[in-house]
Design a protein around this nucleic acid. Structure first.
Lengths: 155, 155
DNA sequence: ATAAGATAGTTTCATATGTAACTAATATTG
DNA sequence: CAATATTAGTTACATATGAAACTATCTTAT
């Protein structure tokens, strides 16, 4: 009598895309709540501030590349940040379509307030891992990123 | 003359929450497209099918716990799956509030079609890593998950 | 046995998000 | 130096999502 055929098993709990998604959401939610509660910022706005602090005068398109946000999301985040006075749009002299974006003094102030909190949050998270494990995790994630999206550099 | 003070640096590209988010999105998007394109299913619907296949007769609440979906998302995914005939709702005899959910034969058929594709997708992704690295990654992610969300078990 | 509270699940409503269409400006081609 | 194609960024529209309110049922405590 032939055995009943077993379909390939797939346990969600061991399926990498699922695990990644759940882990990422858990982490994101923690810090999103921090940004929002303390500063009224969305994750997207925070990302825009971070790259603008890093590269003053950056364009919306470049922000999109660095943050993996699409241009509509960038446009909205930028508009919101200008609205609350953390970001300033300066017309570009050599290309009238783009603007050079810079943090205002208020924006810099908030940014410098957030950075240590964000780093502390990250530190607490990774404190569960040894130095060596942290390095290894970063390396493995890099490999995965390349495998998942070979076309464009994720980081 | 005092040095100019340097604010703590925060490069998005090395900030774990950001990296996790980008990686997870890249991975999810690949498979979401597969489910949708080939079978017209959302990720949420797929997750519901996966746990229902694993545990026939499961309730919506249990699905939520296993998939980390909130009850509204579960409700909608279930409704959609019933609509296309992949899922069946059976009234529970002992508790009239809940239903026992089971895949229909059509649902099982689709499920068994998807599983090997999903596993192949995962396999391709992790093929960038050695066996040892895969195990290590799973272990490190487990630690992170616990650190990020100590209250409830993520997996 | 009954009132108060808890639970399962759905619906409603307000907001977030992505796609496509659009405007304005620059670059390219003949 | 037009005509055409590209690019930067915004707006409009349609869909997705989450929080809160709601219905129905079950549990608990008196």
């Amino acid at each position: 009598m032939p055995e009943k055929t077993h379909p390939a098993p797939l346990r969600l709990a061991t399926f990498l895309p699922f695990r990644l998604s759940v882990l990422s959401n858990a982490v994101s939610q923690r810090i999103a709540e921090l940004y929002d509660r303390e500063f009224g910022l969305s994750i997207w706005q925070w990302r825009v501030m971070a790259v603008t602090a890093d590269t003053p005068g950056i364009s919306a398109t470049e922000i999109g590349q660095r943050t993996q946000m699409d241009k509509v999301a960038v446009s909205r985040a930028v508009a919101g940040l200008i609205e609350v006075g953390y970001l300033e749009r300066r017309p570009s002299t050599d290309d009238a379509r783009r603007s050079n974006l810079v943090l205002t003094p208020a924006g810099i102030g908030i940014y410098e307030l957030i950075v240590p909190l964000a780093l502390a949050e990250e530190a607490q998270l990774v404190s569960a891992l040894s130095e060596k494990e942290q390095t290894e995790l970063a390396r493995l994630m890099g490999k995965l990123a390349k495998a998942a999206s070979p076309e464009r550099d994720l980081w």
